[in-house]
Design a protein around this nucleic acid. Structure first.
Length: 730
DNA sequence: ATGGACAATGTTTTT
DNA sequence: CATTGTCCAT
């Protein structure tokens, strides 16, 4: 097997670099994933390194999985024992194994973002601090940053009054986590780094094992991650990192692209390899990207080049409103698909904030065209899913107070704030957690406890305790899926959420979707299952199987590529975001974010902004993004309107968008008297308008109404019985 | 203890 | 505007 075939000189050099530290600076689309994969294969097959002795860190689980598959392909098997995963995932496993050295047990649970904020809230309450003044979200962000800088509460410098407050909240927050036998995302990194720092035996064990340490997306590591990598490579010093400072977009999460500089300082003998040739985009796209990123100060200039040729110009489009912007996206995609110039799945639509996806989704729904959206939060953040997870987490770890109090009264069984308070107080007196006390109620109840909890409340508590108890026994022998089914059945959860309204049905569908996820992971023990769902990344939810356009944030787009890319909302206040306008560092990051978006495109790039935008429900005029000024006009086709306004009169320059078909109408198209003859996806011919694609069909007033996209004349709405249509094909 | 009605308040980005 | 929290009547 020739691992070096089809590699350029720099890539070859990287793949076959000898021992010692190596720093690969890789521009977008320069094949860094390939380099990493082939290097792992090369180490195993050519250098005789055992997979067991290799550690590779990627940014998402999906990337790890893909990399593993590719290595396995290259070697036809023999990757057993290879450690491949995200920082958080790898740390979670190490902590599980080394729990003896930690303040938590091996059945600890990982608290998600919401749990973390509610814990901060609880901490503020415990300390009698006003959560109006000290906003939990912002307090948590500060704590998180401290952790990423490897600072514990005791290390947190109380320079200002606010710092003093945060230090105390941090302290209490940490106590609450431990009380629940829980860790947050940052603890995964912090605890592991600390463990290596303080326990030489453990550190040596891991450092000896990992003869080779490889890190992807190195520019987005924070201090804790940097320390981790350094510890892990502290024995063999074979550390191979790949990154691109221009693509650093996680500063707010503690990432520090200066880790690249730190690396060069810490390892002065590091080999430096530059990958500049781009295999992804056309030269026009690269030139646009370069024009944008060049405006950032303090960067090492890079020349991005390709052998793919100039390609087509980018399209710059000014929409009248953000709604129209979304409409334009859908119409453009429909045009390309109708003309058979691209597949629906070839398109990605990117935006700065998740909120922007809404209008796009609505536009797709109106056209009755399917789309897919990247984002784990959207799913795992839903109430019903959080409930399911809370039940499972509680079974796994009864000390988890956040989960306990989330579900103890689900469905309502008469346990309110008062009872919860009593339970917590009594548990505190006994020096145990509320969950442990609850479980004890299934045995026998001593009289002080009975008194503390009161007769009526006690009985319902015991009832819930018995449920929890049986679930815990079940969990010992059954799969998480079986346990989940048991919980759903025994709580009557469906009746609780499915009130047979659209929304209720929707929620139940979500539960079923979660159940499907559990089915896919049947073989996992509960601990692993919980860990996996706590650490899913947005990108992990990307579905490659369906042929539909992808909606995603610019952050989620990192590391991906698409033939055609729309970047929407190129307006001041959106990209760059309003909250980065004053801080030059943040402004630089906004620019990098735009750069990341541009460089995802292989063939076509669409840059969109609009004149007005709805914020808080009210429309407002907005300026085009300053970043657009930096792109030479000759690289773009300007689709901005010619002068069409006279004084205050604005003349629409395109045919008006079709009468909106509401989502409710689409979803409630129930048993019409007339059966539709046409369906979305059909190609039809019209005597005057030529050939077109049916986008939508509905029965209205005993007539079939069609939205058809014609190649010649665009989108039209026709009545089927009047327009003489010929069906050309499915 | 529960659920409904109103108010207030808030928007990056994510493991 | 859309979600989340708070108050009040049952």
């Amino acid at each position: 097997m020739d691992f070096l075939k089809d590699l350029n000189n720099q890539q070859k050099q990287a793949v076959t670099a000898g021992t010692g530290p190596v720093l690969v600076l890789a521009g977008p689309g320069s094949g860094k994933t390939r380099v990493l994969t082939q290097r792992i294969a090369y180490l195993i097959a050519r250098q005789g390194v055992r997979p067991f002795n290799i550690l590779a860190v990627t940014f998402t689980n999906k990337a790890a999985k893909e990399m593993e598959e590719r290595v396995t392909d290259l070697l036809s098997g023999q990757t057993n024992g290879l450690t491949l995963g995200t920082f958080h995932g790898i740390c979670a496993r190490i902590l599980r194994r080394e729990a003896d050295h930690l303040p938590v047990t091996s059945s600890y649970v990982i608290f998600d973002a919401d749990d973390q904020v509610s814990l901060v809230k609880q901490a503020l309450k415990d300390l009698n601090l006003d959560d109006k003044i000290h906003r939990p979200l912002s307090v948590h962000a500060t704590i998180s940053n401290a952790k990423n800088d490897l600072l514990g509460p005791e290390d947190f410098p109380p320079n200002t009054y606010r710092d003093e407050v945060i230090r105390r909240v941090y302290q209490r927050y940490q106590e609450l986590l431990l009380l629940s036998n829980g860790v947050d995302f940052d603890d995964l990194l912090l605890y592991t780094a600390r463990l290596f720092d303080e326990n030489e035996e453990v550190r040596k064990r891991y450092a000896r094992r990992y003869e080779h340490v490889l890190v992807d997306e190195f520019q987005d590591t924070n201090l804790a991650q940097y320390a981790l990598v350094k510890h892990l490579a502290s024995f063999h010093h074979n550390i191979f990192v790949v990154g691109d400072a221009d693509q650093s977009i996680y500063r707010w999460r503690g990432a520090d692209y200066r880790n690249v500089l730190r690396f060069e300082e810490d390892y002065p003998d590091a080999q430096l390899i530059l990958l500049e040739q781009n295999y992804r985009s056309t030269q026009n796209i690269l030139d646009i990207a370069t024009a944008v990123i060049e405006r950032n100060p303090y960067r090492t200039p890079k020349r991005l080049f390709t052998e793919r040729g100039a390609g087509t110009k980018a399209t710059l489009y000014e929409a009248a409103s953000d709604q129209e912007e979304a409409q334009y996206v859908v119409e453009q995609i429909a045009t390309f698909v109708v003309k058979k110039q691209a597949e629906p799945g070839d398109f990605a639509i990117m935006y700065r904030t998740n909120a922007q996806s809404r209008l796009l989704e609505e536009a797709f729904l109106r056209a009755n065209l399917p789309y897919k959206i990247v984002g784990a939060q959207r799913f795992y953040g839903r109430r019903e899913i959080k409930d399911m997870i809370a039940f499972l987490r509680l079974v796994h770890n009864p000390r988890d107070e956040v989960s306990l109090f989330r579900v103890i009264n689900l469905p309502p069984r008469g346990i309110g704030a008062k009872t919860i308070q009593n339970l917590r107080t009594r548990a505190q007196q006994l020096g145990i957690s509320a969950g442990e006390l609850l479980l004890q109620l299934t045995q026998d109840v001593d009289s002080p406890t009975e008194e503390a909890l009161g007769g009526r409340a006690l009985n319902v508590l015991i009832g819930f305790a018995h449920l929890l108890h049986t679930w815990r026994s079940a969990a010992e022998t059954e799969t998480p899926l079986a346990l989940l089914d048991r919980i759903i059945a025994e709580t009557g959860y469906r009746d609780l959420i499915d009130d047979s309204s659209d929304e209720g049905r929707d929620r139940w569908e979500n539960v079923l979707e979660f159940r499907r996820l559990a089915t896919e992971r049947q073989d996992r023990p509960l601990a692993t299952f919980l860990e996996e769902i706590a650490l899913v990344s947005d990108q992990d939810t990307l579905d490659k199987t369906s042929n539909a356009p992808t909606l995603l944030t610019l952050h989620a787009a990192k590391g991906l590529e698409f033939p055609n890319v729309f970047i929407t909302g190129l307006n001041e206040g959106v990209l760059p975001h309003a909250r980065s306008l004053e801080d030059p560092e943040e402004m630089m990051e906004e620019r990098r974010l735009f750069y990341v978006g541009i460089t995802r495109a292989k063939d076509r790039l669409f840059l969109l902004y609009s004149q007005t935008r709805n914020t808080y429900g009210y429309p407002d005029y907005v300026e085009p993004s300053r970043f657009l000024d930096d792109i030479p006009m000759e690289l773009m086709n300007d689709e901005r309107p010619q002068e069409t306004s006279y004084g205050d009169v604005y003349l629409p320059r395109r045919a008006p968008a079709p009468q909106s078909t509401r989502w409710e109408e689409i979803s409630t198209r129930s048993a019409p008297a007339l059966q539709p003859e046409y369906a979305a996806g059909m190609r039809v011919h019209h005597a005057a308008w030529g050939e077109g694609l049916v986008l939508n069909s509905k029965i209205q007033d005993n007539d079939e109404i069609l939205d058809i996209f014609f190649e010649e004349v665009g989108l039209k709405r026709v009545v089927a019985s009047l327009a003489k249509l010929q069906v050309m094909g499915k």
